[in-house]
């Protein structure tokens, strides 16, 4: 009993501190928590919903589209997560007319690692789970602890900031600030590393799962009377030259097949000559000027015909 008493005494300060930190972290308004709250609020003004990863998050500037728009894309967000988010929140947008589904070079073959901390953060913020073969381990500390989800460094930053956000939360959800996601690295080494990262997360085994997610997104849009459009954002020439032809061909075949089977519109700006190196913030992300350019192109080629 003496040991049990001493052990309990030893543990008690740790339990008090960790409980305090956990409760504090639950109050932190992260970008995802803030966005989830915005998504919960019904908004009939929104006519366009954008999904995708960082390419669409920083590459589509909603105000330039000329209609109420919510940019649901985010860094490293996969197609299956897009599907889960749209399933969960599409009801908040009764006036939805257009669903712009971002598809990148790496999206179709993107593998999802069930250990990815981002999945736990999404689970916490949006209460969504990937599913379709990727289940979060049910006994994982990150399911119960935000300290474990965020990691020590990020958690401590919140602690020392008085549990306030580390970076300002966007006031609108029309375009994420590029600085939050994308570097300014325009060196050849940076492009090679970025592509190596993309290739590291790609596998042919993941194609079927991602195509199912795309089909579901198309179905969800149509069930709401909205028009789905598959969108491939532009990348710089240097990035494009380093990509593998087999991967590019697979992406194009998949898009062509979806177009043929489901009569869905495909807007592919991958090699669009209207975009120059100066339009890019790094190798595969548009900068502010490039985002405005893509958005105004989309306005005339996609949005206006769809909303007419």
């Amino acid at each position: 009993m003496d040991f049990a008493r001493r052990f309990a005494l030893f543990l008690s300060p740790l339990l008090v501190v960790s409980t305090g930190v956990e409760l504090g972290l639950r109050r932190v308004e992260t970008m995802h928590v803030a966005r989830a709250r915005a998504l919960e609020t019904p908004n009939s003004r929104i006519q366009i919903l954008v999904t995708g990863n960082s390419h669409e998050a920083v590459g589509i500037d909603c105000p330039s589209l000329g209609a109420g728009c919510f940019n649901l894309a985010s860094g490293s967000q996969g197609l299956v997560t897009d599907r889960r988010l749209v399933e969960r929140y599409v009801g908040s947008f009764p006036g939805l007319k257009l669903l712009l589904i971002g598809v990148s070079y790496n999206s179709i073959q993107r593998r999802t690692d069930p250990e990815d901390a981002l999945l736990f953060e999404y689970n916490h913020a949006y209460d969504v789970q990937e599913g379709d073969g990727v289940e979060l381990p049910w006994l994982d500390s990150r399911r119960f602890s935000l300290f474990a989800t965020f990691g020590a460094q990020r958690s401590l930053e919140y602690v020392f900031a008085g549990f306030r956000p580390r970076t300002p939360i966007p006031r609108s959800w029309e375009r994420l600030p590029a600085s939050a996601i994308v570097s300014r690295d325009k060196t050849a080494e940076g492009a090679r590393r970025r592509l190596a990262m993309h290739h590291g997360s790609m596998s042919r085994d993941a194609v079927a799962r991602n195509v199912r997610a795309l089909e579901a997104l198309i179905g969800l849009a149509r069930a709401r009377g909205a028009r789905p459009v598959l969108l491939v954002a532009p990348v710089s020439r240097s990035y494009e030259e380093m990509t593998l032809p087999a991967n590019r061909a697979l992406l194009e075949e998949t898009l062509a097949s979806l177009h043929a089977r489901l009569q869905v519109d495909v807007k592919n700006y991958w090699r669009d000559p209207r975009f120059e190196e100066a339009d890019f913030r790094d190798f595969d992300h548009l900068g502010r000027v490039g985002a405005a350019k893509l958005s105004s192109i989309l306005r005339s080629e996609v949005v206006e015909p769809a909303l007419r």
């Binding site: 960790s18 250990e115 901390a117 381990p137 994982d140 500390s141 990150r142 989800t149 990691g151 020590a152």
Partner: peptide, 9 residues
């Protein structure tokens, strides 16, 4: 451990 451990499997 809490501050330096990598949360991974």
């Amino acid at each position: 451990f809490l501050l330096l451990a990598r949360v991974s499997h």
